[in-house]
């Protein structure tokens, strides 16, 4: 296929993902990586590099407004980033090592990516709590001053919140960072439940703080991919631009469209792409 045609295909593909993702309440990278791995001929190394660039760009685009509104908690992001940046870097190094040093390494990545996407599918089915009740704030969260407030227009008042169980959440964020770097995913799907269900952040704060964490995590992990040459401009440029435009359209449509139907469609897409990647991995390893 002609290179210009590839630019167009990737632009339209990521534009469509950019529109769908906000309507379904997922990050673009979570759809882009498994779908591209399932249907495009690029090596998984370049797909993960593009996935991280996508996740980073959407986190960078949305974080400033969320910070201005008091929804994204920068302090919590910095605390979490200390461990998750290190694990995201480790994940990137391990991920590229597996595909480049282990024979049939890419099939192990396909297989584990498929399993991770299945996990995301299950996480997405689980409910979230809009305003979790904080019965007791642990001493670490208290000492770190992990609290904040924002004006909630639907309630017409300022809502105050507190984070708790900071220490308990650290192992979860280490795992999240590792997966993000290894598979090129933004990992909001995992950050949000940890922030919301474990650390008791209200759902809006959890989503917004997750964006700030993704910005810090993926930027560090992406450096590994840049330095190793796994960021191919021919793939990254049209996808980042397409996704940036698409997510703006998606955000506007969220007001009018029926997100429930779209969420079901996206869940089906996720499930199918997970199964295709698992099959690709097992087939490549000669297991099916």
């Amino acid at each position: 296929m002609d290179p210009i045609l590839w630019l167009l295909v990737l632009f339209i593909f990521s534009l469509a993902i950019g529109i769908l993702a906000p309507l379904a309440g997922v990050g673009g990278g979570v759809l882009f990586v498994p779908l591209s791995a399932a249907i495009f001929p690029f090596n998984i190394d370049f797909i993960r590099g593009a996935g991280l660039a996508l996740a980073l760009t959407s986190a960078l685009s949305s974080s400033p407004k969320l910070m201005e509104e008091g929804l994204a908690n920068l302090k919590a992001s910095i605390v979490i980033a200390v461990v998750s940046v290190a694990s995201a870097i480790a994940g990137s190094i391990i991920g590229l090592w597996v595909t480049n040093k282990i024979p049939q390494g890419k099939y192990y990545i396909y297989l584990t990516l498929g399993i991770v996407i299945l996990l995301i599918f299950l996480v997405m089915l689980k409910g979230r709590v809009e305003f979790p009740e904080v019965k007791k704030v642990d001493s670490l969260s208290q000492k770190l001053g992990l609290y904040g407030s924002w004006y909630e227009p639907s309630l017409g008042k300022v809502v105050e919140y507190k984070f708790t169980r900071t220490l308990h959440s650290i192992p979860a964020f280490i795992g999240v960072g590792l997966i993000a770097g290894m598979f090129g995913l933004g990992a909001g799907w995992a950050n949000v439940p940890v922030l919301n269900l474990l650390m008791c952040a209200p759902i809006k704060v959890a989503v917004s703080t997750s964006m700030a964490i993704i910005a810090l995590n993926t930027s560090a992990a992406l450096w590994i991919y840049i330095i190793k040459g796994a960021v191919l401009p021919l793939i990254v440029i049209p996808t980042v631009i397409g996704m940036t435009i698409g997510s703006r359209i998606g955000a506007m449509l969220t007001v009018k469209a029926r997100p429930r139907v779209i969420r079901i469609i996206v869940l089906v897409i996720l499930l199918v792409s997970a199964l295709v990647n698992i099959h690709k991995g097992l087939h490549g390893l000669g297991m099916v």
């Binding site: 690029f42 090596n43 190394d45 370049f46 590229l96 480049n100 190793k228 796994a230 021919l234 793939i235």
Partner: peptide
């Protein structure tokens, strides 16, 4: 672009 990054 189907090759692993080092080979590419």
């Amino acid at each position: 672009w189907d090759l692993p990054v080092s080979k590419f």
